[in-house]
Write a protein that binds this DNA or RNA. Sequence first.
DNA 1: GCAATTCTGTACCAGTCGGTACATTTATCA
DNA 2: TGATAAATGTACCGACTGGTACAGAATTGC
Lengths: 203, 203
Amino acid sequence: MNAGRKKTFDTQEALDKATKLFWLNGYSGTSISDLTATLGINKPSLYNAFGNKEHLFQASLDHYMKHYGSPRWEKLNVSEEIPLEHRLKAFLQAVIKLVTDPGLPQGCLFVKSTCDSNSHALPEAITQTLKELASNNLTALEAVLRKERAAGSIPPTVDIDQMATYLASVLYGIAVLARSGSSADSLQKAADMAVSTLLQHKG
Amino acid sequence: MNAGRKKTFDTQEALDKATKLFWLNGYSGTSISDLTATLGINKPSLYNAFGNKEHLFQASLDHYMKHYGSPRWEKLNVSEEIPLEHRLKAFLQAVIKLVTDPGLPQGCLFVKSTCDSNSHALPEAITQTLKELASNNLTALEAVLRKERAAGSIPPTVDIDQMATYLASVLYGIAVLARSGSSADSLQKAADMAVSTLLQHKG
DNA sequence: GCAATTCTGTACCAGTCGGTACATTTATCA
DNA sequence: TGATAAATGTACCGACTGGTACAGAATTGC
């Protein structure tokens, strides 16, 4: 079972490095040579560990959502006793901190990749994955809002889908602005504004 | 002066086709072969007419802003007698119509390209151009808001930069959502909400 | 020690990339 | 009718693309 030569690299570490490279340069902007250089391994090792470029990207997307995306989304569900406005602000603040983190690529891998979907710069299977992830995001927002509406902190007349789409647009727009160099500070002010009057909104 | 063989194609038509191809597939996702095939011309003709890939992309960005972007932005300045709310909604409605137009690539070339900036999937000069375009967009929004504030239709305490960044995030987010397949209808509802949120905001 | 197993490094594959040299065709001007 | 100018089609360039064959190195169980 444990026979054979030992791996000289850690698969998870390599996956994280690959994720950051895709995050920075995108799918078609990242070559296998870029990857092997950054990961410090040779091509056969890479192909043995991750299959091919498309599989590696899928794994990177998954890794990104689990390790960079989800921790921010948890801010929305931390506790229903905290007012929705505070949770939304905390969520967006955490997102802004991520997408402007100087130690990480600017912006968001999901948003960036979504802009590549439905093109032949991206394999169809990846476009499909991205569509599912987008749907999951909207569903998560809707679930939070629905709970709030049931709890009475949001008017019963409010259109949940509308509000979720609105929040998603602010969320994704922030990622684009971060990529274009906007400061965390100005993004935070915009995010506060996006949330501030949300609760006053009458369906 | 008029000596020499006649061109067999129209430069502007070819530029528009190239723009749509970049719009669909992005800079690094569009090859010279793709371009010559779609434009129906050979490589020497393409290089003679547009320089090289980078120059062609710069020209495409310019063409895009002039022929697809600007007409929408004009909705903001159509007349100061029309209430800001109506102009903002008309602006966003026109943008949504563009980014979801079934006869055009989904989303926005500027937003898509911005997500590629600061990466080696894009020449540095193009990243610089995109940064300038982003700055122009923010400045245009700020100018509109400043006028409104001076005219008294927006509270004098309002932070113009904050409001402009907020609008930009909604605007860019809509382009991302369009690319991921959101319907014009749901985007329109989200945009309406964004506008009413903005108008309810008190500095 | 010795097979079996697994990873590593090198060297290579066909195909495509952006870009160009060059000869040819088509036009204008003298 | 040339001479000149400009656009065309073909054929090619070195570099890079994603991907792999193969030999050798390292580890295990027997």
